[in-house]
């Protein structure tokens, strides 16, 4: 993993010896990885390899048992989720987690509010913040959903929901974006749309992505990490990892 280390630059994400187990079963077993700013890192591995558990620990939904997580040099492993978000982490969920009764616009506004001081204001009507709604629609436009801004989430298609998930994360202009299987359950066309979205994420955002769909995901990745039983098996540039025999073993040996 030192291959990615560059002199004098602070890593966007530096995970060291991360351990987490559930009832004695290790889910992440001594995972270390370093992701440089602007990098696109793909994390692959069979089911149960501990990929989502790793994401949950980076985002703060789970506390690690031991190890450290540094975000641009700052130790965040004891921070609660919302504090990490304030420091520039954003994520999407493998299982879509949106506010189903609310409009797309409102979902985006909640995302924008998450980083604004006005979220504590309980005396001024939210509908008065026209600029928030404008910004929400602007972000929706970047994922091609502006025309649905006023529809409730429950009325849009699965693929569109995936795009809203991504829009909510992008709206916060995160420094570190965690995408948990953004292509899962999408049709071929939708996968192309979403992968274009991911490809268009600006380079000042570092992207960490879990994905099973190799065809699409490989193209997006600079570096790849292969997890298996909670351990890092292979790591390196795309081409190297793909041709590595251990990668094949993990995948085909299943």
């Amino acid at each position: 993993m030192s291959a990615t280390m560059q002199q004098g630059q602070v890593a966007a994400l530096e995970v060291r010896n991360l351990k987490k187990s559930f009832g004695g079963l290790p889910a992440t077993n001594d995972v270390s990885l370093t992701v440089m700013p602007g990098e696109r890192r793909l994390i692959i591995g069979p089911n149960g390899a501990g990929k989502t558990t790793l994401f949950n620990q980076i985002a703060g939904d789970l506390f690690c048992d031991s190890g450290s997580i540094k975000l641009y040099g700052e130790e965040v492993s004891r921070f609660k989720t919302h504090k990490r978000t304030q420091r520039g982490v954003a994520r999407t969920y493998q299982i879509i987690t949106l506010f189903g009764k609310d409009t797309l616009e409102h979902n985006l506004v909640l995302s924008l509010l998450g980083l604004l001081k006005t979220r504590w204001n309980s005396f001024v009507p939210l509908s008065g913040s026209a600029h928030l709604y404008e910004e929400a629609r602007r972000v929706l436009a970047t994922v091609g959903l502006e025309h649905l801004a006023k529809r409730p989430i429950s009325e849009i298609s699965y693929g569109e929901k995936r795009r809203v998930e991504i829009a909510m994360a992008l709206a916060q202009k995160p420094r570190l974006l965690l995408l948990d299987e953004p292509l899962a359950g999408l049709s071929r066309e939708e996968r192309m749309t979403v992968s274009k979205l991911v490809a268009a994420v600006p380079r000042d955002t570092t992207v960490l992505m879990i994905e099973h769909d190799m065809d699409v995901a490989l193209e997006l990745a600079d570096q790849i990490t292969v997890l298996h039983y909670g351990k890092v098996i292979v790591e390196g540039p795309r081409a190297e990892v793909v041709s590595d025999p251990r990668t094949k073993e993990v995948y085909l040996g299943e």
Binding site: D61, H82, Q86, R91, T97, K101, L113, M168, Q172
Partner: peptide, 14 residues
């Protein structure tokens, strides 16, 4: 009320 986990991921102190 609707999605506490999502709210904290969005930066809200639930």
């Amino acid at each position: 009320r609707d999605q506490p986990r999502r709210m904290s991921a969005l930066g809200h102190n639930v």
